[in-house]
Design a protein around this nucleic acid. Structure first.
Length: 580
DNA sequence: GCCGTTTTCGGCCCGACTGTTTTCAGTCG
């Protein structure tokens, strides 16, 4: 069984233990182990055979055995035992918002309900409301949750969530009474997929209620889940959940930090605070074991900003993208965090289409748009002749385009267009252009656009062969559109990155608003292997050049700094590198 | 089940909101 499968099963085992009413720390241990496995970039098989798996924090003896069994056989005795205790439908009920393990267990044991259909039927017959600890409101909420589950996908891609968040935040952030405001949560951490939107605001107490009113009455709100003094939760058009928290300004840094997460990072921060005798929550520090009543503990260390907060714990500031408890706290302690790449470091991109193939704008229009973004250069890479569906160029048209670019370059000062191509990788792994045509270009992006139904190993061989070609500069959209529709990758990205490292080639972090091809784990692996990446939006229009920010997010999460990224270099450096 | 500068036992993050309760359990983040 592969890694994503193992992660899923460990998570499921944690959930099943929770349902059983086992020691809550035991079930959490399984969930922690799942996160730990997720963070492993080395080859899992090797880790298991060398025994190094036990050195992974969060994986102890018992879970190591389970992982080993899962890896070798696809199942394990413990897992089979746990699965026996509850039917599939019971586990599914847990995904209904508002239903947790305790309530699901009661519904299953007292009413013998084990699937969503029976649950809906029982609600209609008013049987849920009669259970101990349930009532008519709870029953209504379960029905609402059930409907929401059916109509809404639970995660959206970062660019979509960003757009929704900006719409809410723009007005709200400027509202009277707002002292400071930030978008927090996984959106601030720039996760590739985002579950919901979190907003944190600081304001005086008297301004809270009016601000909450503004929030829940926003035009984009389709329903209100909760509406309190300091916390409200709504569902926006498009089904995405949005939470607002309002705190006092002196609490802002704590609240922002807390609601930015991740959960794993917060747990580590709190346990770090405990080691120095402090308790950390979303409002501030308090003395551990203090006798003060809840919420009245006096604030000990004033922290105006998050930097102050990290400093109070002996750490340097940690960028939100790194807050996953995957080594960033230890690195912050030693002041060994990388200076992450920023959007302003990007000086151009290399994978852009024009009206020569399937783009919407001319070469000149694309170049002007790039200049408006403050870039120094733009790489044009239209499709090769075999990409008929995308208006691939003929050899003659390719020559024509190269001539046009030369002419534009001659006229322009301080800006340069690089002549490239996005060359199809044929099913054999050969390139779609002849050597003669390839020689026209300054660089070559190689991509797969056909014959997707290959086995993983065939596809990997195909790509590796193309990568080895002496004219190849970088691999374009390495994982295609399949990244989010599958658990794994359609190709073995570890082998591909290894090959890029061996042959001294680059890999694209191809960030298109509908997908992201190289996620942060792969970015991290590429960094470890010394592979330079190129952040390209696969832009088909002038306006989509700015989608490059999606890829910058993934690079930041992969701890990449400007030196790891090709398109942070100057025009001159790029020319020199490409001549070699 | 995992972990260890309070270390092989005894902790393991903490608060808001909701609903069903009259003092708290469940869920969520």
């Amino acid at each position: 069984m592969d890694k994503p499968g193992i992660i899923r099963i460990l998570d499921e085992m944690g959930t099943l233990l929770e349902l059983q009413g086992a020691n809550p720390f035991k079930s959490r241990a399984f969930q922690n182990a799942a996160r730990a496995v997720e963070g492993i970039t080395a080859d899992l098989g090797e880790l298991i055979s060398s025994g190094e798996l036990l050195e992974v924090r969060g994986v102890g003896k018992s879970i190591a055995v389970i992982i080993k069994d899962l890896h070798a056989t696809g199942t394990s005795d413990e897992y089979r035992e746990l699965r026996k205790s509850f039917p599939d439908g019971v586990v599914q009920m847990l995904s209904i918002p508002g239903l947790g393990p305790k309530k699901v267990k009661a519904i299953y044991e007292k009413l013998k309900i084990s699937n969503l259909e029976d649950l809906e039927q029982a609600i209609k017959e008013d049987r849920i409301a009669e259970l101990d600890g349930f009532g008519s409101k709870t029953q209504d909420n379960i029905l609402k949750g059930l409907m929401a589950l059916r109509t809404r996908s639970d995660k959206v891609l970062y660019p979509k969530a960003r757009t929704s968040a900006d719409r809410i935040f723009e007005g709200l952030g400027k509202e009277r009474g707002v002292i400071r405001a930030e978008v927090a949560g996984s959106l601030r951490r720039r996760k590739e997929v985002v579950g919901d939107i979190d907003i944190v605001i600081s304001a005086k107490k008297k301004d809270c209620a009016p601000l909450m009113e503004v929030f829940v009455n926003h035009a984009d709100v389709t329903s209100i889940v909760a509406h309190g003094e300091t916390k409200s939760s709504v569902i926006l058009q498009g089904g995405i959940n949005c939470d607002l928290r309002i705190v006092e300004d002196k609490e802002f840094a704590f609240a922002l930090n807390y609601f930015t997460g991740s959960k794993e990072h917060n747990v580590e921060m709190r346990s770090r605070a405990r080691k120095v005798g402090l308790s950390l929550n979303e409002y501030g520090f308090s003395h551990l074991h203090a006798e003060e009543t809840r919420g009245k503990a006096k604030q000990l260390v004033q922290c105006k900003t998050e930097s102050d907060l990290y400093k109070a714990l002996g750490l340097c500031y940690i960028d939100p993208e790194l807050r996953e408890n995957l080594g960033e706290i230890e690195a912050a302690e030693k002041n060994a965090l990388p200076k992450l790449i920023e959007e302003k470091d990007i000086r151009g991109t290399f994978h852009c289409h024009t009206t020569y193939s399937d783009g919407a704008n001319s070469v000149q229009e694309m170049a002007s748009a790039a200049q408006k973004l403050g870039w120094e250069y733009l790489g044009i890479a239209d499709h090769s002749k075999g990409a008929v569906y995308a208006g691939g160029l003929s050899d003659a048209r390719a020559k024509e385009q190269v001539k046009e670019i030369d002419a534009i370059n001659e006229k322009s000062k301080g800006f340069r267009i690089f002549k490239g191509t996005e060359c199809d990788i044929l099913p054999t792994g050969d390139l779609d252009w002849s050597e003669k045509t390839l020689a026209l270009f300054e660089y070559v992006v190689v991509s797969v656009h056909s014959n997707f139904k290959m086995t993983e190993s065939e596809m990997t061989k195909r790509v590796v062969k193309a990568l080895k070609h002496k004219r190849t500069t970088m691999l374009g959209h390495p994982t295609g559109r399949l990244l989010l529709s599958r658990d794994g990758y359609p190709i073995d990205m570890i082998k591909v990155i290894d090959a890029a490292s061996d042959y001294g080639k680059m890999i694209e972090i191809n960030s298109h608003p509908s997908r992201l091809d190289l996620d942060w784990r792969l970015c991290k692996y590429a960094r470890e292997k010394g592979v330079t990446v190129s952040i390209n939006p696969d832009a088909h229009s002038a306006t989509s050049l700015s989608d490059v920010s999606f890829g910058v997010g993934a690079a930041r999460k992969g701890w990449l700094s400007a030196k790891n990224v090709f398109n942070t270099r100057s025009s001159r450096e790029i020319s020199e590198m490409l001549r070699r």
